[in-house]
């Protein structure tokens, strides 16, 4: 009950955040140099043609009127239409958000598992071989640019070893399944198509690996540092001094305390992931939100950029909320 009240309070906080973000997004992009109208009209267009296009897009209205009508539409779920493609933004979002989310969630999950197992192992073998190897690997993952890593993985596993599918699409063409949720792994399961499920996993393999490798490093370092701290703490030593079994020590006294710090950092890392996904989607021709926003940015497609900023802000707020709830669940000292 307490948790529910807390979550509700935090969700209400989303309202002012979104108002602020929408204001900033709306006005700032209009300050950017570049006129979207000039990009969409043919080169031979006359002044009159341009004015007509401007009027058609509603860009001739006073800016405040434009903002209010945008907010009015957004409240009813209508984020307008793309200036360049004339497609409904809402339809684009519904189609693309699951693609990106799928990529992010799996990468995050893989990174977390690697970081926790690796970080605790490194701490338990402090300054010995496993620790050194893991720290070097983490440093490597941290220092390579993700798009380069993605390209190298494609080169090695697709072109070289032929174990990965070509970097396009989410599932082999002949195995397409009807869309229900937009999440390909879930959709293939709904369709009961095992082969398509495996194919989807296969397609996810490289992009998820790329993203996971690049974000594991900061998480692993943090887990290692917390685990070292717990191992050196009085409470862990006390439990050890009372002769508890190694397995109990590891699971009940080391792990739980080590994990209490992870959610906050994970939320920040998730933000990096969202940024990193833009390039990765490009490298793997992944038709997600990142690519869509990138193209919108290039052609000053105002509604696209605005919608992306709102989606990103909402994601941040929700991720940090989730992180706080998990943290409170892990650490009884945290008050909500």
């Amino acid at each position: 009950m307490r948790v529910a009240a807390y979550v509700l309070k935090r969700l209400l906080l989303l309202i002012p955040v979104l108002i602020g973000v929408s204001l900033i997004a709306f006005f700032l992009i209009r300050l950017l140099p570049g006129d979207p109208v000039l990009l969409i009209v043919p080169e031979t267009a006359t002044e009159a043609d341009i004015a007509a296009a401007r009027e058609r897009l509603g860009l001739d209205q006073p800016i405040l009127t434009q903002y209010l009508s945008y907010v009015g539409g957004a409240l009813t779920g209508d984020f307008g239409t793309s200036i360049t493609t004339n497609r409904s933004i809402s339809a684009d979002l519904a189609q693309r958000i699951p693609l990106t989310l799928e990529l992010l969630i799996y990468s995050m999950a893989v990174a977390l598992v690697l970081a926790v197992i690796g970080g605790v192992a490194a701490a338990r073998h402090w300054h010995k071989l496993p620790d050194k190897v893991l720290r070097f690997a983490a440093l490597f993952g941290n220092s390579v640019p993700e798009f380069w890593l993605g390209l190298m993985l494609i080169l090695l596993f697709y072109q070289g070893l032929h174990v990965a599918p070509p970097p396009s699409g989410r599932v082999d063409m002949d195995l397409a399944v009807p869309t229900h949720t937009g999440f390909i792994l879930i959709d293939t399961l709904i369709a009961g198509n095992g082969k398509a499920f495996l194919s989807a996993l296969h397609h996810l393999m490289l992009p998820v690996a790329t993203l996971a490798i690049t974000v594991t490093a900061p998480l692993l370092r943090s887990v290692r540092a917390s685990a070292l701290e717990v191992l050196a703490s009085d409470n862990y030593r006390c439990a050890a001094a009372h002769g508890l079994a190694p397995r109990v020590l590891r699971q009940r006294y080391l792990m739980r305390q080590t994990l209490t710090r992870l959610p906050a950092l994970s939320a920040i890392v998730f933000g990096n992931l969202l940024g990193g996904s833009v390039l990765i989607e490009y490298v793997f021709s992944w038709q997600g939100l990142g690519q869509w926003a990138l193209r919108g940015m290039q052609v000053r497609d105002y509604p696209v950029i605005q919608a992306f900023v709102l989606v990103a802000a909402t994601t941040y707020v929700l991720i940090f909320l989730l992180a706080d709830v998990i943290q409170a669940a892990l650490d009884p000292r945290v008050k909500m």
């Binding site: 009085d234 409470n235 030593r237 009884p332």
Partner: peptide, 14 residues
């Protein structure tokens, strides 16, 4: 052994 400063010698998450 009874540890010094018991509050820090007890596991905070259990």
């Amino acid at each position: 052994l009874c540890f010094q400063s018991p509050r820090s010698a007890l596991s905070p998450t259990r």
